[in-house]
C-alpha cells in the first residue's frame, strides 16, 4: 500500500507456552478505518499493544509513518494516538488538566491550550472541562479517554474497544467521532467484538481468532466468503448448548453456536432449515421464544469461519 500509515507483518508474541499473537500482518492507509474483529481473548489487545509500542514483540515488525515501532521508539509513538480499553485518565484531575498533562507528554508546547480547547469541543466536554473527572458519567469519561488520544493530531489513532460499558447515546457520539476522523484523513485501527460497530465504521476488517488473522477484506469480501447463506438467531427457553450438536447435524446447516439461551445458526436456506431446527429444540425439551432471520453479516462470517459466536 503506497500511502500506508501503518504496515505490520509477521507480528508474534508468546507468553510462556501460550502463543498470544501469531504472524499477524496488515496495513492501514491514511483516511482508512481498519477493524480488528474478534472475541475476547483473541489477541486484539496484544496486537495493538505491540503496534502502540507498549510491548516488545517476539517477531515481526510494525512501521508507523515510516518509523519502526518498539517500546523505545519515540518518533513512531509521536505519530500514534492510543485510546486504551481502560479509562486511563486521572480521576482527581479535571478534563482540561488531563488533556494538558498528556499534551505535554506528547511534546505540544506553544499551542497546547488552544489544542485542549479544540479537543474539549470535539468531545463535547467544554462546559464540564474544569470539573474533576471522577464526577463524570461513564460516557463522558469514555469521550475524554478518546480526546486524550487525539490531543497531538496523530497519523494513526488506535481505539481498543472504546464503547465497552457505554450508554447508547455516548456510544453513538463516539462512533460519529470516529467516522469523522476517518473522513478527515486519519488512519484508524479499531478493535471491537461488536459486529455492528465494525460494519458501520470499518473500510476493511481483519477477523482475528486465537492470535491469528483468519480473514481480511471489506465487508463485501468477507460476506462473500459465506456465500448465499442465511443467519438464524433463536432465543430458547433454556440452555441452548444442549441442542448445539443436534442442530449442527441437520442437513443444510453450516454452523451452529450457543451462548446462554441464544442459538446462532448459519444455513444454506433458512426456510428449509428452520422447521428441523425447531423440531430439534423441541426434542431437547426446550421451546423457541423468538426467531430472527438475517442476511449474512460479519457475525455470520465469524461463525462460518470459526464455529464460534463473537460474544462467546
Amino acid at each position: 500500500m503506497a500511502d500506508a500509515v501503518l504496515e505490520c507483518s509477521g507480528l508474534h508474541k508468546v507468553y510462556g507456552d501460550l502463543v498470544a499473537v501469531d504472524d499477524v500482518g496488515f496495513s492501514i492507509a491514511a483516511g482508512e478505518t481498519y477493524g480488528l474483529l474478534g472475541p475476547n481473548g483473541a489477541g486484539k489487545t496484544t496486537t495493538i499493544s505491540m503496534i502502540a509500542g507498549l510491548l516488545d514483540n517476539d517477531g515481526g515488525t510494525a512501521v508507523v509513518s515510516g518509523n519502526v515501532i518498539t517500546t523505545k521508539s519515540t518518533a513512531a509513538k509521536a505519530a500514534i494516538g492510543l485510546v486504551p480499553q481502560d479509562l486511563a485518565i486521572y480521576p482527581d484531575l479535571t478534563a482540561r488538566e488531563n488533556l494538558q498533562f498528556f499534551g505535554k507528554l506528547y511534546g505540544i508546547k506553544g499551542t497546547l491550550n488552544e489544542r485542549v480547547d479544540e479537543i474539549l469541543d470535539i468531545i463535547e466536554l467544554s462546559d464540564r472541562a474544569d470539573d474533576l473527572t471522577k464526577e463524570y458519567s461513564g460516557g463522558m469519561k469514555r469521550r475524554l479517554n478518546i480526546g486524550i488520544g487525539l490531543i497531538h493530531k496523530p497519523d494513526l489513532l488506535i481505539l481498543d474497544e472504546p464503547t465497552v460499558g457505554v450508554d447508547p447515546q455516548s456510544r453513538n457520539a463516539i462512533l460519529e467521532n470516529v467516522e469523522r476522523l476517518g473522513a478527515e484523513g486519519m488512519a484508524v485501527l479499531y478493535t471491537t467484538h461488536y459486529m455492528e460497530e465494525a460494519e458501520r465504521l470499518c473500510d476493511r476488517v481483519g477477523i482475528i481468532d486465537e492470535g491469528s488473522i483468519i480473514a481480511e477484506g471489506t465487508r463485501r469480501d468477507l460476506v462473500a466468503m459465506v456465500g448465499e447463506r442465511d443467519r438464524l438467531h433463536l432465543e430458547l427457553s433454556g440452555d441452548a448448548s444442549v441442542v448445539e450438536g443436534s442442530v449442527s447435524a441437520i442437513d443444510g446447516v453450516d454452523s451452529c453456536s450457543a451462548a446462554g439461551s441464544a442459538l446462532e445458526v448459519v444455513a444454506v436456506s433458512a426456510s428449509r432449515a428452520l422447521p428441523e431446527v425447531i423440531l430439534a429444540v423441541n426434542d431437547a425439551g426446550l421451546d423457541v421464544h423468538s426467531v430472527q432471520i438475517t442476511e449474512p453479516d460479519l457475525e455470520s462470517v465469524f461463525l462460518h469461519l470459526t464455529g464460534k459466536a463473537l460474544r462467546e
Binding site: 507498549l54 523505545k72 509513538k77 509521536a78 481502560d86 479509562l87 486511563a88 506528547y106
Partner: peptide, 18 residues
Amino acid sequence: QSRRLGVSHRMLSTPTSA
C-alpha cells in the same frame, strides 16, 4: 492507582521513555 487505571501504561504510549 496510576498503574491500575492504566495511566502509567498510557504514558508509555506517548513519546516518553520509561
